[in-house]
């Protein structure tokens, strides 16, 4: 039996990933900041709930202790993320971006992912099939950001792409250091969720596919990679 933790899983891609992994037999913990929303999501999914705020050391430590006591962890999905949009769901452009806005996005997308990974490493190292999936974005690709033929070229924001670029590098550095684990970054695609104010063009079912696929990577599967459902993405 595979035990899986998904951060930010009371809605959006995290929730749908939980649903799909439960359907294939995983025991899933959904990590949520808000206990009330988390409880109702867990009830609907048949998942276990763990209180988890990825920006808070104590919360993350407590979640790791709780899951360790319950029997451990095989798969960690670092899904919790924010885009940092402005008024009326506008993307904050370069001219309007402040250092504090960038820090706020990095607090969840980068430092949060590292905080959670760090706390759960001891549990993952006790698993015989340890897997980490970092939910990134094609907006984190430096190559695509500089390629006028890529749709991501025209994204005007600064904080979100920079945070996902940092997350990609973190994925690679962890993957090299822990060759016994499958550690990959994934690009779900532009999905209709609250993160982008429901402007995404694909469904959560479609978006969760690559997350679910990499969460189920076998022990001889890829590691240190960056994938969409269509295959590898240039860094």
């Amino acid at each position: 039996m595979t035990t899986t933790l998904i951060t930010g899983a009371n809605k959006g891609l995290g929730y749908e990933t939980a649903r799909q992994l439960i359907a294939v037999g995983h025991t899933v913990y959904i990590g949520c900041r808000d206990p009330k929303r988390g409880l109702s999501a867990a009830d609907q999914l048949g998942a276990r709930l763990v209180h988890l705020d990825v920006t808070d050391d104590e919360s993350v430590s407590a979640a790791a202790i709780f899951i360790a006591e319950q029997g451990g962890l095989d798969v960690l999905v670092n899904n919790a993320g924010v885009e940092g949009r402005g008024e009326h769901n506008s993307i904050i452009d370069a001219a309007s971006t402040t250092a504090n806005m960038v820090r706020e996005v990095f607090d969840t997308n980068v430092f949060g992912a590292v905080r959670v990974t760090h706390a759960f490493l001891p549990l993952l190292q006790r698993s015989s099939t340890p897997v980490v999936v970092n939910v990134s974005s094609s907006l984190g690709s430096l190559t695509l950001a500089g390629s006028p033929e890529s749709p991501t070229y025209h994204y005007p924001g600064v904080a979100y792409p920079a945070s996902k670029s940092a997350l990609n590098m973190i994925t690679v550095q962890f993957a090299k250091q822990f060759p016994g684990m499958r550690i990959n970054a994934v690009e779900p695609g532009y999905t209709n969720t609250d993160l982008n104010g429901r402007t995404g063009t694909q469904t959560v079912e479609e978006g969760a596919r690559i997350i679910v696929h990499m969460a189920r990577t076998p022990t001889d599967g890829p590691t240190g990679g960056y994938y969409s459902v269509h295959g590898p993405i240039p860094w």
Binding site: D93, A145, G146, P156, V158, A162, A166, L167, Q173, F174
Partner: peptide, 21 residues
């Protein structure tokens, strides 16, 4: 981890500002 990740972020920031200005 920190230095490469911070400079990877800086590269994307550079590209985003270059396109905006």
């Amino acid at each position: 981890i920190g230095y490469p990740a911070s400079k990877a972020a800086l590269n994307v920031i550079t590209v985003q500002y270059a396109k905006a200005f």
